[in-house]
Simulated assay, not measured.
Amino acid sequence: MENVTSEVSNPFGIRYYGRAVPGYGDANADVHVVGDHPGRHGGEGTGVPFTESVAGVRLQRVLHAVGLLAEPYADRPDCWNCFCSYAHPEVWRIGERADGSLDPDEAAYADAERYLDAELRAVNAHILVLVGDRALGYGLREHTALADRLPTEAAALHAQEVTGRGFLLVPVAEPSGWTPADERALVERLETILDRDYRQTKGVATTVG
């Protein structure tokens, strides 16, 4: 496949309203990892998703184990066949919500969804690795017919496969709460998927495996 760009940070030139942690990685990737927002999964200082956080350290270790990152951890990882995005890439400050929540409100997530939609279309991956409840909810709602039939808690579907419209979805429990068994399960699941012809997932019927 011809490279669409050699840039690894915000390769599609998306313009954000505020300070953001844009998509990062291989713009031709087959694996698109989607997390929540910088305050939860890291990257406010580096500008790279899944860095500077417990979640980032653990997730990068898994991606390295299955051959998608060159090192177990880096602030600017060398990605192969892997692209990372956030459901809400703009930096969200504690106290911006009246209840002091760490997370953006529903209106903010809805407004930011266009950024993720644009990156998903541009990368056109085959596998969506959905990290945490927010990313999983988005994936089930937008890319399967199962949003009202499957749990939206990522821990309940951790390291399983959900085949949707155009993507194979892999739900991932919040990495900060992983046990060693959770980490091993995700490594094994991704190795299994990457060892087979996962490109056949495009356009197949929606199932759960």
Rank of each mutant, 00 (worst) to 15 (best):
G43W: 02
V34T: 03
G45A: 11
G25P: 08
G43T: 04
I14P: 12
P22N: 09
D26N: 05
V33M: 12
G35K: 03
Y16N: 15
D30P: 04
G18F: 01
D26K: 03
G25L: 00
G13E: 11
P11W: 05
D30F: 06
V21A: 05
G45F: 11
D26G: 02
G35F: 10
G35T: 05
H41Y: 06
P22T: 05
V31L: 11
H37Q: 14
R40Q: 12
R40I: 12
R19M: 02
P22D: 01
F12W: 14
P38E: 08
G42C: 11
R40E: 07
D26V: 00
E44T: 09
D30V: 02
H32M: 10
G42D: 10
Y24D: 11
G13F: 11
G47H: 06
H37P: 00
G45M: 12
F12L: 10
H37D: 14
G42K: 05
V21R: 02
E44Q: 04
D30M: 06
Y24S: 08
Y17E: 13
N10S: 05
E44L: 09
V21S: 05
H32K: 10
V31C: 13
G47W: 00
V31S: 07
P38M: 13
Y24K: 08
A29L: 12
G45R: 09
N28F: 01
N10R: 10
E44M: 01
G42M: 11
R40N: 15
V33L: 15
D26S: 07
D30N: 10
G39E: 10
H32V: 07
D36N: 14
R19Q: 02
G25S: 07
A29Q: 10
G45N: 14
G45T: 12
N28V: 02
G13M: 11
Y17P: 06
Y17K: 15
H41E: 08
P22G: 08
A20L: 03
Y17I: 02
R19K: 13
D30G: 08
N10K: 06
V33K: 03
T46G: 01
H32W: 09
V33D: 01
G42E: 11
I14N: 14
N10H: 11
G43E: 07
H32T: 13
R40C: 06
